[in-house]
Amino acid sequence: MAELVNLRQFRKQKKRQSEEKQATENRILFGRTKIERQFDDRKKQKTDGFLDLRRITRDKDEE
């Protein structure tokens, strides 16, 4: 005889597996470590500071 399968449990198990697979893919695509985020933040701050120091501003008196 064939083994009986509870369809409700089977569907839940299949859904869990697909969600775990999706979560794994998202970790690969979007996941970054804390160190990587801090590095990017400091790099952006350094770039913004560099640009701010070299910004050309015009006084209203000159116009």
Rank of each mutant, 00 (worst) to 15 (best):
Q45V: 09
Q13C: 03
I35W: 04
D52S: 09
S18I: 12
D61S: 04
K12T: 14
Q22L: 13
K15D: 09
E20S: 02
D59T: 09
L51F: 08
K46A: 10
K21P: 04
E3S: 11
N26D: 15
R58D: 02
D40Q: 05
A23W: 12
L29Y: 03
R58E: 06
Q13T: 10
D40N: 06
E36Q: 14
Q13I: 11
K21C: 09
K14T: 13
K15H: 13
K60S: 03
E36F: 03
R37K: 12
T33R: 01
S18G: 04
I56C: 01
K46P: 08
R11W: 13
E36H: 04
E20D: 15
F10K: 03
T57C: 06
R55I: 11
F50V: 14
K34E: 14
R37Y: 02
K44G: 05
G49E: 14
T33M: 01
D61M: 00
Q38W: 02
R27M: 15
Q38F: 04
R55L: 15
E19D: 11
E62T: 03
D52A: 06
D41S: 05
R42V: 14
K14W: 11
D48W: 01
K46W: 11
G31N: 04
M1G: 04
R16T: 06
L51W: 08
G31T: 05
A23Y: 09
K15Y: 12
R16K: 11
K34R: 11
R58H: 01
L7Y: 12
F30P: 06
D41R: 05
N6A: 03
D61R: 00
F39Y: 12
R42T: 10
Q17F: 13
R32D: 04
E3Q: 15
E25V: 06
K46C: 07
Q38A: 10
D52K: 06
F10T: 07
K14H: 09
K15A: 13
L4S: 08
R42D: 14
R37C: 13
L4W: 12
E3F: 14
L29T: 02
M1K: 06
L7P: 03
Q17A: 07
Q9P: 00
D59A: 07
R58V: 05
F10R: 03
G31P: 04
E3Y: 13
R32N: 08
Q17T: 12
K34L: 14
R54E: 00
D41M: 05
T24A: 12
D48T: 15
F10N: 07
F39G: 13
R32W: 05
Q17S: 09
K14A: 14
G49F: 08
G49T: 12
K21F: 15
K21G: 11
K43N: 14
D41K: 00
M1S: 07
D41C: 05
T33S: 06
R37G: 08
V5M: 03
R8S: 02
E19L: 08
D41L: 06
F39V: 09
R55W: 02
F10L: 06
A23Q: 12
Q17D: 15
R27H: 14
G31F: 00
